[in-house]
Design a protein around this nucleic acid. Structure first.
Length: 435
RNA sequence: GGAGAGGUGCCAGAGCGGUCGAUCGGGGCGGUCUCGAAAACCGUUGUCCUUCGAAAGGAGGACCGUGGGUUCGAAUCCCACCCUCUCCGCCA
């Protein structure tokens, strides 16, 4: 969420931003609640002050007549405090509820548009291969080559679950290792994260674990949810932590399974592996100072591009517009890879997504850093106040979608699929998949 | 899952229900000494919220794992939960 004071002081900008982002928030009500909350806090603190004062006077007044008086005064104050507390808390809760509906501010260069039609392609890499045969989609390829089994998935777990088999299993592991090895060289620490997380963490990252439209599976009789992305567990990893500025930037590359209910996604383009309830994903995550988050975000999109260039898969980079961004993001880029079997004659499909969430998540998760003090010449002032870190997330490789791109782009006329060169070191000698 | 111990500030570790935001030590920061450093000595050292102030800062409130409770008053007593450690059980 945004800083409450910031909201109060930048109402017009917030109002415009909400409109651009298609977020309907009653800012008038927000202001009223905010004032109510402050008044109530002030009132409560005054009562607390009196309580403290009364308790202080009690010291060493054994059996004095004054004692009785103070006790009854204390009792009365206690009742008043309880009421004031309840009232302050309800205002606080209502305000927080409203505050979390206000999206992050937006990068000035992000395209402004209410729906995805405003997404802007900013560059393209690679030429979609021209096949001298009719390109198959990954569903057919997966079936013919015994790589993907949707029927068994449906039988055992339901629609949109699947089994990977044979070389597809090797491909998943190879893609994971390829991403891990590449990013480790770029200064990322590899992490295997839990696949479950507490609701509180989900909500700090900006997911809503409850409600009819939630994307999140939750585990009965616990406060745990299946994570939709390792962004949740990587971001949550440092919740309530104070870092030293010297520890920043911190780059992590996490591997996890991802679970999504895909509620309300019926009818959308969702053939095969494109939209499934469970998949494996390698995710980049970074904690930075506010001054360096934009550069890190650009770095992330370059890493994503490098990974797909390495795989030899054509893609385009899309600058996501205001209406298509999601609450916590300040700016967001997607990579869309060429998928020859998508649509009539092939099409680009989203394979990665990277967002700079600035301090929007850090504020709720309590992730701060202590600025380095400039002791040397000049300003030793350097306000040593704690500041919120900026948090950047980005897909390295979402296995299911990368698998679509690999199978469809590397298919051969004879029905086999070649293994991309970059994956060969991890494929145990398999260079071509055929039956 | 069962039994026991414990969760206190940057770290370590005290804390009869009132004088505890919290002893002592270490570390960090500032200073004295020194050509410089070490040692020694002196001083200093949290976060969040409200409010006043241009600012420096002042005033008030909250925070001793989390949430409740008892009490005029709780780090200290009670309950629940979370987490850590040791032992047992179970397992990968």
């Amino acid at each position: 969420m945004l800083d409450i004071k910031f909201i109060r002081e930048n109402l017009n900008a917030i109002r415009e931003n909400c409109a651009n982002r298609n977020a309907r928030v009653d800012l008038g009500r927000f202001l009223a609640l905010e004032e109510e909350r402050r008044l109530k806090i002030t009132a409560l603190e005054e009562i607390r002050r009196l309580q403290n004062e009364t308790a202080e006077k009690m010291r060493g007044k054994q059996g004095q007549p004054e004692r009785e008086m103070l006790i009854s005064l204390g009792k009365e104050l206690k009742l008043r405090a309880q009421e004031a507390e309840e009232s302050a808390r309800s205002a606080e809760t209502a305000l927080a509820e409203l505050a979390r509906q206000i999206p992050n501010m937006t990068h000035p260069e992000s395209p402004v548009c209410l729906d995805e039609s405003g997404n802007k392609e900013i560059r393209r890499w690679g030429e979609p291969a021209k096949f001298d045969f009719k390109a198959l989609d990954h569903v057919v390829l997966g079936e013919r080559l015994s790589l993907i089994d949707f029927d068994s998935g449906a039988k055992v777990a339901g629609q949109k679950f699947y089994y990977l088999k044979n070389e597809a299993v090797l491909l998943e592991q190879a893609l994971i290792l390829y991403a891990l090895h590449s990013l480790r060289k770029e200064g990322f620490s590899p992490i295997m994260t839990p696949d479950l997380a507490r609701e509180q963490i989900l909500s700090g990252i900006g997911f809503n674990p409850r409600g009819a439209e939630t994307q999140i599976y939750s585990v009965a009789n616990t406060d745990l949810c299946l994570i939709a992305t390792a962004e949740i567990t990587l971001g949550g990893m440092l919740a309530d932590t104070i870092l030293e500025e010297s520890q920043l930037p911190a780059r992590y590359v996490g591997v996890s399974h991802c679970f999504r209910t895909e509620a309300g996604a019926a009818g959308r383009e969702s053939k095969g592996l494109y939209r499934v309830h469970q998949f494996t994903k390698v995710e980049m995550f970074a904690f930075t100072t506010p001054e360096t988050s934009e550069a890190m975000h650009e770095e992330f999109v370059r890493h994503e591009e490098k990974l797909f260039q390495g795989l030899g898969i054509p893609y385009r980079v899309v600058d996501i517009c205001t209406g298509d961004m999601g609450g916590p993001a300040y700016r967001k880029y997607d990579l869309e890879a060429w998928m020859p079997g998508r649509g009539e004659n092939g099409d680009y499909g989203e394979v990665t997504s990277t967002s700079n969430c600035t301090d929007y998540q850090a504020r709720r998760l309590g992730i701060r850093f202590r600025p380095a003090t400039e002791s040397s010449a000049g300003q030793r002032e350097g306000s040593k106040k704690l500041r919120f870190v900026h948090m950047i997330n980005g897909t390295a490789i979402a296995i299911s979608r990368a698998l679509i791109a690999v199978l469809e782009n590397y298919q051969q006329k004879d029905g086999s699929v070649l293994v991309p060169k970059a994956l060969l070191p991890y494929m145990g000698g398999v260079e071509r998949i055929s039956r």
